[in-house]
Amino acid sequence: MRNVWIICRKELGSYFVSPIAYLLLTMFAVIFGFFFWNMLGIFVVEGMEMQMRGQVYPMNINEQVIRPLLMNAGVIGLFFIPMITMRLFAEEKRTGTIELLATSPIRDLEIIIGKWLAALLLYCCLLLFTALNFAFLFRYGNPDWKPLAMGYLGLLLQAGALLAIGTFISTLTKNQIIAGAATFGVELLLWVIGWVGEYETSGWARGFSYMSITSHFESFGRGVLDSKDAVFYIAAIFLGLFLTARSMESLRWRS
């Protein structure tokens, strides 16, 4: 446990001394902010139009603003996660520092979890910016906080799974760009693969949409904790980290 923390601290350090962390934070804040004010604008205009027409439809800020925004945050994260994970192992392999880690009295798994945890913590920092936007809603409105909390839990689980996949891909190459591009490709595929479920209902289509990372987020977005979906994400995290461990072992065989 101590070793995990040592590695994690070191990784966080190198994220935050280089411009990468600040670049990601700024870009994420700008893009999410744009989505937020857009969504809010639509919500306000719709509300006014309804009043003008004299209709009183129940307007629900949770359903109409928060839930789609959380979905969006997940998708934006998809674009940022490869940039977080691509350097984790590729960089160490390129500069040879992996020789230091691998000849120190510390287990492979501790290295892997330390790195993955650092990536997850950086992602949490990104999410903190979304929380600032939501704080604004609480200041001027009265949304329900429980679905929001559940949504964040879902976002974290989803990111954990995607980060684990990215960590695995980073062990396969010495080249950060390749690691990043491959991670992005795989994650994009895991997102769009669920779309087949919208027009097909046969077995393979259900299998595909089950594999889709984003389809499991829906229940969290609605504020429901569905154990099936939580189990999916946790299993994906374990699988990703397990593959990373296997890859690290065989990496020594090959390198």
Partner: peptide, 28 residues
Amino acid sequence: IGYLPETPPIYPEMETAEYLKFVGKLKG
């Protein structure tokens, strides 16, 4: 064991003292 590989395994973004502290902790 202590090991000095062919290319010194250093992290360019760390300071010397910080790096030695990190390695020391890694070694327990």
